[in-house]
Design a protein around this nucleic acid. Structure first.
Lengths: 206, 206
DNA sequence: GTCTATAAAAGGATAGAC
DNA sequence: GTCTATCCTTTTATAGAC
């Protein structure tokens, strides 16, 4: 990468301060509307240090995105181990929505969608390490349950993706548009409804 | 509005030319990255005319968004009149996805999400005249079918929203991120899968 | 009402001292 | 490796002639 991590404690601190400030600024204003002046004002220090550490504005942005993305994905790695499919789907759905609807999750999606043209590889990387992994893990379970004759799913992959979208209801989209920020219980009701619908749709009626 | 429509044929033509050029530019580059120079280069004419007609950059942007939004919503107004719920859902799902996945539809969502902070009322207006109307029309049908004992739906409103999200699969999201642009038959397969899942989920098992 | 020319500001990037 | 000061491009917005 173009970024050159600092080698001494002082540089370490400066780098961390810039990252923290930049995260706040990019999250709040997006890429194009964010100015490095804003970042400097928050972090203190000088423009030159920022350029030395991150190369340019895009390098700083990429560093922020990768950091947020990593933070988001972490909780989804530990797939619930419950035995009952319905409970597993519930737990997974809650973890998924929790990551998506958090302020930094929403900001990540907003800025990634808005700047996908300028940062195509970044968008691809985030997608692959986030939603794609979630869908794959879910599809794996669906396929397994199907093989065990516990459910009837012809296309686990597509079903998994549709389930993940269904979980969002339109809460995620509305939050992206800043129309409103739903409460915890609204989100939970949405997840439960989606799970109920999926379970009804894939259970074997006999 | 700050815009002042032209009163003579020549002004009419200039306004139309600017609108067309601006639409292409905003759709391609978003709001912040679009420059009025690009618009002028495409439309011909002068900067001063643009300012006289639309007030400023934001005024021009709002005019474009309202135009695209109106174009998108039109096809969704004519709800399919078939008798069979499954066929109605299929037709509606196809029309919905057709609007969403069209280049101008994707561009509208991208720019609206990316600039929701700067244009909150615009985002609200588009949401209300688009997805909200679609969800309401669908919920109305679901509620009716439920009353007629043809299906079992406890919360038509939420089910409608979740169905609309499910239809997208993750095709819409991936297209927003410019990861890929699915073919017609992929979209159709996704819609059909969603309809099948919904119908299975809400049909009365007896 | 439209054009040419220009003002005015913002923001990204760098040179050079320490 | 960091700071101060500055350059330079881009872009929004307007003044004034026709």
């Amino acid at each position: 990468m173009g970024s050159s991590p600092a080698k001494n404690p002082r540089g370490e601190r400066r780098r961390a301060a810039i990252l923290e400030a930049a995260k706040a600024v990019f999250v709040e204003r997006g890429f194009a509307n964010a100015s490095l002046d804003d970042v400097i004002r928050r972090s203190g220090g000088s423009r030159a240090t920022l350029y030395r550490q991150f190369g340019d504005k895009e390098g700083l942005f990429a560093a922020i995105i990768e950091q947020i993305s990593a933070e988001m994905v972490a909780p989804l790695r530990s797939f619930p181990t419950d035995q009952d499919p319905e409970l597993i789907l519930l737990a997974f759905g809650r973890a998924f929505m929790s990551a998506l609807m958090a302020p930094s999750g929403l900001a990540l999606y907003r800025v990634l969608i808005g700047e996908a043209e300028r940062f195509p590889e970044l968008a691809k990387a985030v997608y692959r390490s986030g939603p794609l992994v979630a869908a794959e893990q879910l599809a794996l379970r669906l396929g397994r349950w199907n093989a065990e004759k516990r459910v009837s799913v012809t296309n686990p992959d597509m079903t998994a993706r549709q389930f993940l979208e269904m979980i969002k209801g339109d809460l995620h989209f509305r939050a992206l548009l800043r129309l409103d920020t739903p409460r915890e219980n609204e989100i939970d009701a949405c997840v439960r409804s989606a799970v109920r619908l999926l379970v009804a749709g894939i259970s074997k009626h006999n």
